[in-house]
Simulated assay, not measured.
Amino acid sequence: MRPFVYEQPSDISDAVAIASRFTTNDDQPTRANAQFIAGGTNLADYMKLGVAEPNRLVDLNRLKDPGLRQIRVSEDGVRFGALVRMGEAADHAEIKRRYPVIADSLRLAASGQIRNMASLSGNILQRTRCEYFRETSWSCNKRVPGSGCAAIEGFNRQHAVLGGSDACIATYHGDFAQALIALDAVVHAEGSRGARKILFSKLHRQPGETPHIETDLVADEIITAIEVPALPWARRSLYLKIRDRESYAFALASAAVALDLDSDNVRDARIALGGVATVPWRARAAEQSLQGKKLDEATATAAADAAFAEAQPRQHNAFKIELGKRTLMRALLETRDMKV
């Protein structure tokens, strides 16, 4: 790991000011000389590998604003402070009762030790675990723009079948993000240009020709909160994760589902897919295919087909299409049968 300067500001404005001094308007957060750190479970790992090489770390853990560490549940929805730990949110009684898909996604995301360290804001900004991104001897457009994508012709079993491009097929590996995009979450951010709200669906960018530009954030912006609007029928929701082993593994395919039902007929559906896409993936075509229909095996199958209609498999990951369909079908039917 290369040497770096370590900063511990006490308020958000100081943290933003430090980042602003050592970055420019053109810097991407993941490539900036000054980068923010909270739990450190992702950035510290990539610094050790030589993938991330910031000259300065701005530790957010001493920021005084108590709202950064609070979970507020109301009739308007839920607001998570950016520094709330994954474990706190997963174990929160009202989150488990009102938004089980959120609690499920956090509980299944990592080991207990990591959940106790990792912040919610850091979790949604985690970077891919693509082997070619992590190993600096391989070409990777996300790590070194213009160098090529070794995964396309390499071993690509874990890679994305949705949202990829000729420049990048790296999978987004998070779980919590699938619940957030399904439930129309909003992210609050603050930087030198002021405070703003970002629809969670607009936060992450598909790779296109610029896979190194991963989010809509700029280098001196700090996420301060995540809000999920009130959705009373989100009590009928779950997150299903399929992986190579049951303990501490990333998804091969996953589905976040929330259903508004009249008997077995679908009034509204929210669906997001994980493990199969380059970004948190809202399956809107699948949602639309269910509207006004009785949810049974036939309509669940049709929804799954719609969700993967534009999938583009590579040599080793074609199995993800069928696995993803079966995962979504199972999640839909299990959500339908929940007792709420």
Rank of each mutant, 00 (worst) to 15 (best):
F4C: 05
F4G: 01
F4Y: 14
V5L: 08
Y6R: 14
Y6S: 09
Y6W: 14
Q8I: 15
P9L: 06
P9K: 14
P9G: 06
P9C: 03
S10A: 05
D11C: 00
I12R: 15
D14S: 04
A15D: 05
V16T: 04
A17N: 06
A17Q: 12
I18H: 03
I18F: 02
I18D: 00
I18M: 03
A19E: 03
R21Q: 09
R21F: 07
F22E: 05
F22C: 08
F22Q: 04
T23R: 01
T23N: 04
T23K: 02
T24G: 00
T24P: 00
D26Q: 03
D26W: 04
D26F: 05
D26K: 00
D27F: 08
D27V: 12
P29H: 10
P29G: 13
P29I: 10
P29E: 15
T30L: 14
R31H: 10
R31W: 14
A32Q: 11
N33V: 15
N33H: 11
N33G: 02
Q35T: 14
F36K: 10
I37H: 09
G39Q: 01
G39M: 02
G39P: 05
G39Y: 13
G40W: 15
G40M: 06
G40E: 05
G40P: 07
T41N: 11
N42V: 01
N42A: 01
N42H: 09
N42P: 12
L43A: 00
L43M: 05
L43V: 06
A44C: 00
D45T: 05
Y46C: 04
L49E: 12
L49F: 12
G50I: 02
V51T: 15
V51K: 05
V51H: 03
V51N: 11
E53V: 10
P54A: 02
P54D: 03
N55R: 14
N55F: 14
L57P: 06
L57M: 10
L57Q: 08
D59P: 02
D59E: 11
D59K: 11
L60P: 02
L60F: 13
L60N: 12
N61L: 13
N61Q: 11
N61Y: 15
R62I: 12
D65T: 02
P66S: 14
G67R: 09
G67M: 06
L68Q: 09
R69P: 12
Q70K: 11
Q70S: 12
Q70E: 09
S74G: 02
S74P: 01
S74D: 07
